[in-house]
Design a protein around this nucleic acid. Structure first.
Lengths: 235, 235
DNA sequence: CGAGGCGTTGAATGGCCTCAACGATGGTGG
DNA sequence: CCACCATCGTTGAGGCCATTCAACGCCTCG
């Protein structure tokens, strides 16, 4: 069903953290020049296509990732084989925090859209955070952010009617964005996020289009009628 | 609907951490005698009745809690006022980690059953964890555990039919327990945990009783037919 | 050109929700 | 002590919404 593409073919060179455009927002934002000198391991940048898995559940957590662009889904499986997407991770977010605890990864991490990520050895973070309070605090903050996301995913996206859930998902996609334009996910992924079937996701999205709550601006890019979607989301 | 009882009347004395029966499993398990000497603030123990709130969403996080016995629910609210229970916290678990980051609490924390908790100032943990790698690692581990719980709550308890969800909840209640005996929650709470109505929760539990998957051993204490519940949970 | 993936739509079923009623229980006050 | 009330679990009836199973058009790609 989901094609699994190797990361190998996605390598896009070594990253230049010091001059990273996202640096202020990234995990390494608080590092000094001296800190960077301590990083002897290469930090690689990858260009991943939709469907590519960065890692799988249970894999040894030698690496952590920062997302530069695009979206990555975190997927868990039920005993019966059905999948549930428990979170999506986007620009400036960190993937694989659990690796710091020497646990295997807790999810499959799979690209939803074309995405750029930076990969760095877990060991680097572990070493740096020992002596760097700011990085260390940054890690705690991100752990908490993941937890808040997980809770919101439950209260907002797994509660209420299908219409409400889809509306909340759409609104979530454009939060903290300058425009109300966004790319949609496949109906199958939407279903796995919202705990509904792909058919219901499809019907609901199609309905929103007919009601002009959703207007296609470019190929698979939609403008949202935020006020009306918000009305649907809340009652 | 839910009575809110003040913590004040629940005070049960100062805790004696050094001789705590739960110490090896508790947050402070790795502390030395010297560490304890640094704690100048009192650590209080409370005996809370069902319905009592330890804290509410947005409250200033001056304190953290360890649960000694019983269960505490973490509750979030939707804009329309309906509530969703996003996690339950039980013996040896820590409540209020988010307080370490100077955020307000992210949930209402309310006792489900009669419970005993220890309360300690967030400041104490913040100070001790600065110089104590073991405590510090313990904190990270607990953060990750909360995250795993949150994810499991979504995949196991918010996915599938009502029958499956209730079965999974019951099994979860006796996991890592010596016996298969457990107390049930009110049908309203079950509904809020599983994203179903109280009536559906009631009907499902009543059905389980009729099928002898659930046998009352004492007043509101039930023995589970684990193999058959597991069968229901998985298909 | 055929195959396969994806989004869409239809029809029918069924599971859950809604609204309502009722019994049991436990606490309160006369 | 007992009538009274509130709460909680249970059950019924009816309706709606999501699922299920199926078919079809469109697109990409081999």
């Amino acid at each position: 069903m989901v094609k699994s593409v190797s990361l190998r073919e996605a390598w896009a060179g070594e990253a230049d953290c010091r001059n990273c455009a996202l640096r202020t927002a990234a995990l390494f934002g608080g590092l000094t020049e001296a800190d960077f000198d301590q990083i002897h391991d290469p930090i690689d940048q990858y260009d991943v296509k939709p469907g590519t898995a960065l890692y799988k559940t249970g894999d040894v957590g030698d690496y952590m990732y920062t997302v530069r662009s695009g979206s990555i889904k975190l997927v868990q499986y039920l005993p019966d084989g059905s999948q549930r997407i428990v979170r999506i991770v986007r620009s400036t977010d960190v993937l694989g925090l659990e690796a710091l605890l020497d646990e295997g990864y807790q999810h499959d991490a799979v690209a939803l859209q074309r995405a750029e990520v930076c990969r760095f050895p877990t060991r680097v973070v572990r070493n740096l955070s020992r002596d760097n309070p700011r990085l260390h605090h940054e890690l705690l903050t991100r752990w908490q952010r993941a937890l808040n996301e997980a809770d919101a995913w439950l209260t907002e996206l797994s509660t209420g009617s299908a219409r409400q859930r889809v509306a909340r998902l759409l609104l979530r996609l454009v939060r903290d964005r300058e425009t109300s334009e966004c790319e949609l996910f496949s109906r199958e992924d939407m279903g796995a996020m919202l705990g509904i079937t792909t058919e219901t996701a499809s019907r609901t999205i199609a309905g929103f289009k007919r009601e002009s709550l959703l207007v296609e601006s470019r190929q698979n890019s939609f403008l949202l009628d935020i006020p009306n979607l918000r009305r649907i989301a809340e009652d």
